[in-house]
């Protein structure tokens, strides 16, 4: 059991949970994730470790409540506990040691970008973060990222920062030159757009993929993605890959495998009957 020690709503559908997980807090590296199961009978879902406090033995999970399982997770309160947390899984982020990094975060992906930016800044790398959301209240981790370097905020409606997409602001940063590497985490269409943007600039671009996963140890093969024409398992080979080689159409497509189930489960939940799951 992993008690929840703190809980904070970050945006209308994004919640941060600080969870007791001593060993993981002690050894986790940026880019790694955990698989959690909220309670007996619940789904196993992968979540990136947004932050960790090795002294307190806690890890921070930032959860976007979109489906039944994520809604169940964010319904947990301080004092309650998550049944299972396993990890840290996946390869740590490939960090550069010097130079300039452009970190791009969209929506809940910003929570994944944050530990990367933090580690880069700690190495003395110059960090420029470009983060976005629908409007002001959807922008997360802005203050934390400011501690790592310059932050450019973009909102779709212009209610905070610049009006427009993260790719527009990122393009300007790239045009100024000097960017050695790009880290981009967000919705699949955003990561695809970033990869397309950086390709002509010839800047190495790392994306973090979030395919459907069950065990997280390579056993099930559900998280397979196509990278440079080769099938890779995101859980053991990733979750981060060269964005210029990822087949985003396939990823997007496979993410839709259970859309019908999810919609049915979500509407059943909305009707107050969470027991009907299929």
């Amino acid at each position: 059991m992993h008690p929840i020690l703190a809980k904070k709503q970050l945006s209308p559908n994004v919640t941060r949970l600080d969870v007791q997980a001593t060993r993981i807090a002690e050894i986790k590296k940026p880019g790694q994730f955990v698989i959690v199961r909220a309670a007996e009978g619940a789904e196993r879902i992968p979540l990136t470790i947004a932050d960790a406090d090795p002294q307190a033995g806690t890890i921070s999970l930032v959860i976007q409540a979109v489906g039944k399982s994520t809604k169940e997770l964010v319904a947990l309160e301080v004092g309650e506990a998550i049944r299972d947390v396993s990890g840290p899984l996946g390869h740590p982020t490939e960090l550069i040691e010097k130079g300039k990094a452009l970190c791009i975060g969209g929506g809940v992906g910003t929570a994944v970008v944050h530990p990367i930016a933090k580690a880069l800044a700690a190495h003395g790398v110059q960090v420029v973060s470009v983060i976005g959301g629908r409007s002001k209240e959807w922008v997360i981790f802005e203050e934390e990222l400011q501690k790592c370097g310059e932050v450019i905020v973009c909102t779709d409606d212009g209610s905070h920062g610049r009006k427009g997409f993260v790719t527009d602001a990122a393009k300007e940063v790239l045009e100024k030159g000097g960017v050695d590497i790009v880290y981009a985490v967000g919705p699949v269409p955003m990561m695809r757009a970033v990869a397309n943007l950086t390709r002509p600039f010839g800047v190495h671009t790392i994306v973090s993929l979030n395919p459907v996963m069950v065990d997280g140890t390579g056993m099930c093969g559900g998280c397979r993605v196509d990278v440079g024409g080769e099938t890779k398992f995101a859980c053991v080979d990733g979750p981060e890959f060269d964005g210029h080689l990822v087949d985003f159409e396939l990823l997007w497509d496979r993410l839709g495998t259970y859309r019908e189930f999810e919609q049915r489960a979500a509407s059943a939940c909305a009707d107050g009957d969470c027991r009907i799951r299929k």
Binding site: G41, A42, E43, R44, K68, S69, V214, D215, M219, C220, G221, G222, D253, R254, G256, T257, Y258, F261, E262, A265, R275, R277, K278
Partner: peptide
């Protein structure tokens, strides 16, 4: 393509994740 499973995933969803218990399981 969607609809292609490795047997490990198919069986894990049904067995370990209890999709065989249609009422109780929450893994599709």
């Amino acid at each position: 393509f969607k609809g292609v499973y490795a047997a490990n995933e198919y069986l894990t969803r049904v067995n370990l994740m209890e999709a065989y218990r249609k009422e109780e399981g929450s893994t599709p």
